[in-house]
Design a protein around this nucleic acid. Structure first.
Length: 494
RNA sequence: GUCCCCAUCGUCUAGUCUGGUCCAGGACACCGGCCUUUCACGCCGGCAACACCGGUUCAAAUCCGGUUGGGGACGCCA
């Protein structure tokens, strides 16, 4: 059987956004599923808008997501000779012609047609120029573009889309499109096809926004006498207002980089993205890489555009809540060693990393992550809400401070008393610490919760957290005693 | 304006091809309850959808037609 070869061809005119990442992911899954190859091809023929920073950002984003490719990155501009040769072949075979209409003229015609609410495609002015006319114009030094000559045929052009089924379009609805600029540089429509033919691409999996390109490109394949790849157009990703998401109108929330900065687990993003416009046909929602590759298939891609559900300005839903939920799931269930590596990066960035976490304190490190990860949303929480586990310098959240500490001024005496009992304990474990805590509460005739919640606030700075006596034993006697003793300073400064 | 695509809970979606097992299932979100030393964990429960009209049929979310709605494309961008 023929080898499956797919490609991801981003244009380097901005960062990698989630729509592009999803396209890359689907291609990657398809390649893996069929033991095929994924080719990364940077389509940089738009010299004015392509930037090195974009190229770096895209590659960086793909690598972070774990989407690897088998060939490339190729750069489209390196194959300019192929594109020009193809254009000349089309010219020679009568599939294309030179057009001397100026941009200005065409623009005027377009505007006039638009104003009259008429069809505004190219009117074919230069299509029937004789060889003599062409020569004459060229001798006068009039610049020209090359246009593809859409065949005059009755009926419709059709291709079989793996997602949408049979797609048809009347030949008469397709205008003669430009394939080479007047400066001699070939355009996307042509370059893309020439490259796909050269790279022996068997399946073109891209967004539905390319559908009108596809009909024209089918014509190009035919004229170049190349075998048609299989096409599959996937639904687009929209915002809540059903607008196609874009960097320009949505900003960083649609950038892959944003999720990296916000502490998302790369595979969680992949898992979320693949569920946007695809489903396995079962109720499974979480997948390992192997499971997802196994489950993936083109015919389960949805035909309907999906909404990336985020509300700008809402801090709780700064991105799609389902993405947050999936991230939380992985945070809670993933292999502790792997989580340890991810959190290490966070701690290092926050200057909280202790090399001993890799050896002598390894067990403590992993046990602590396991204890606190249950209530966290992103990797950033380990250095924010979880800071007190890794540093003695942490802030007390004002909310629990008011609710659990300043509301009971006597805690300034009680907690140091508790500290002394902890210090005197023969065994510092969950049972013993709980026992003496309840004992003291009893003697003081207060509810244990007063002591316990006050303790949580002082020890961790947080309103919520794991079971108190798990926290106490995790932090260790020294830190607990020290922190409980200094409550007076805390209250004085509060 | 022209062409193309699409239409199930707030969101992601199952079910549509092969009509009956669907007074429509799951997940997220939301609401309520439970657990509890807290809670952002966990458990249990609830709310919530077949765009509309017509046709075919014993039977339609499912097939057909129309309407409406949404999206995409219409560049010497990719």
């Amino acid at each position: 059987m023929e080898e499956v070869r797919v490609r991801f061809p981003p244009s380097p005119t901005g960062y990698l956004h989630i729509g592009g990442a999803r396209t890359a992911l689907f291609n990657w899954l398809f390649a893996k599923k069929h033991n095929g190859k994924l080719i990364l091809r940077i389509e940089d023929t738009d010299e004015e808008r392509s930037t090195q920073a974009s190229i770096d950002g895209i590659i960086d984003g793909l690598q972070w997501l774990g989407i690897d490719w088998d060939e490339g990155p190729y750069f489209q501009t390196e194959f300019a000779a192929d594109h020009i040769a193809a254009a000349n072949r089309l010219l020679a075979s009568g599939h294309a012609y030179k057009c001397f209409c100026t941009k200005e003229t065409l623009e005027q015609k377009r505007e006039a047609a638009l104003a009259d609410k008429r069809e505004f495609g190219y009117d074919g002015t230069c299509r029937h120029l004789t060889a003599k006319d062409v020569l004459q114009q060229e001798q006068q030094g009039i610049p020209s573009v090359i246009r593809f000559k859409v065949p005059v045929r009755p009926g419709v052009l059709s291709y079989d889309d793996q997602v949408l089924g049979c797609i048809e379009r009347a030949y008469t609805d397709i205008e003669d499109f430009v394939i080479v600029r007047s400066n001699g540089k070939p355009l996307y429509l042509l370059c893309n096809v020439v490259d796909d033919i050269r790279d022996r691409i068997t399946h073109v999996l891209r967004g539905q926004d390319h559908m009108s390109n596809t009909t024209r490109q089918v014509l190009l394949y035919e004229a170049l006498q190349a075998k048609l790849p299989v096409f599959a157009h996937m639904p687009l990703t929209m915002d809540l207002q059903k607008r196609k998401i874009s960097k320009r109108s949505h900003g960083e929330v649609v950038a892959v980089q944003f999720y990296r900065e916000k502490g998302f687990i790369p595979w969680a993003l992949c898992n979320f993205l693949c569920l946007l416009g695809w489903n396995p046909g079962t109720e499974q929602e979480f997948f390992t890489r192997e499971e997802l590759i196994e489950a993936f298939s083109l015919n389960r891609i949805s035909r309907v555009n999906s909404v990336f559900n985020f509300k700008p300005g809402d801090p709780k839903f700064f991105t799609d809540p389902k993405l947050i939920a999936i991230n939380e799931h992985y945070l809670r269930t993933m292999d502790l060693g792997e989580l340890g590596d991810l959190v290490r990066t966070e701690l290092e960035q926050a200057n909280l990393w202790d090399p001993a976490y890799e050896d002598s304190k390894r067990n403590w490190y992993l046990a602590t992550l396991n204890l606190i990860r249950d209530r966290f949303h992103t990797l950033k929480d380990f250095t924010a809400a979880g800071r007190a586990y890794f540093s003695d310098e942490y802030d007390i959240d004002p909310k629990p401070l008011a609710k659990n500490v300043t509301k009971y001024p006597e805690l300034a005496i009680w907690l140091p008393q508790l500290a002394e009992r902890f210090a005197a304990l023969a065994e510092f474990n969950t049972e013993e610490t709980e026992r003496v805590s309840r004992e003291l509460a009893d003697e003081l005739a207060v509810k244990p919760g007063v002591l316990i919640n006050g303790m949580r606030t002082v020890l961790t700075g947080q309103l919520a957290g794991p079971s108190m006596f798990e926290i106490v034993t995790t932090l260790g006697r020294d830190k607990v005693v020290t922190r409980l003793r200094r409550i007076e300073h805390l209250l004085a400064s509060a």
